[in-house]
């Protein structure tokens, strides 16, 4: 798997929980404190080991960890901006999730995001079907959806259900209930970022 996944987990641990947490995780799994390179490939097993160590050190469930990672990722400026290209309001953003995998593939062909498909049900209720070969993307998506709701200023109820516990082809479902699109003032988003737009590198890990 492309290192950007492991690197994101690393950045989350370092920047959200602090470098001491990262050091503890590093010691547990026996890798160098510099961690992962976003653009290099790593074995899938590494991701599993990394998540396992983070769970233990932080003493939280896998699901909560992944949801936190999703929310944190969506709040990093570079990724927030890329997600905001999905649409002018939260509803459009939800609809744009169908294209998220394609967009990610266009930007970074090696990044294997799960297939996402949004099913509309009754008024304001949606189910996001997440089909990936690695379990856990559902929880990550739930975190992303939650953070983006804050970003757009929408009021939503999000529930990750039917999460997979084992690898393999399967679907995870995230239910989204959109209560109020204009609940609060969203964060500002200009289509064109500042000329010297920061990248993932602005969230550089300091160890």
């Amino acid at each position: 798997m492309l290192g950007v996944v492991n690197k994101s987990i690393q950045s989350f641990l370092c920047n959200h929980h602090g470098s001491s947490v990262w050091r503890e995780v590093v010691e547990r799994i026996g890798i160098a404190p510099e961690g992962f390179e976003a653009m290099l490939d790593y074995e899938d097993r590494q991701t599993e080991v990394l998540l396992g160590a983070a769970e233990t050190v932080l003493d939280i469930s896998r699901e909560a960890l992944l949801e936190d990672i999703g929310a944190w990722l969506a709040m990093t400026e570079s990724l927030r901006r890329l997600l905001r290209f999905g649409g002018a309001d939260y509803l459009e953003f939800l609809f744009s999730l169908d294209d998220l995998q394609g967009r990610a593939m266009m930007a970074l062909p090696g990044l294997e995001l799960p297939e996402l498909s949004l099913n509309g049900e009754t008024q304001g209720r949606f189910t996001l079907v997440v089909s990936g070969w690695m379990p856990g993307w559902g929880a990550v998506m739930a975190g992303i959806l939650r953070a983006m709701a804050d970003d757009y200023g929408a009021l939503v109820l999000i529930e990750a259900s039917e999460l997979q516990s084992r690898p393999g082809v399967g679907e995870e479902r995230v239910s989204v209930c959109l209560l109020d699109m204009d609940h609060a003032e969203g964060r500002r988003f200009d289509l064109a970022g500042p000329a010297h737009e920061g990248s993932l590198s602005t969230e550089r890990v300091t160890v």
Binding site: V4, A38, M39, S78, R81, L82, F85, R103, M106, A107, L108, L191, A192, G193, E197, S199, L200, S201
Partner: peptide, 15 residues
Amino acid sequence: EFLFMSEAKAAVLNE
């Protein structure tokens, strides 16, 4: 899509 791509490309290139 063009704006998305140019920003995503810039991020990847930076990395």
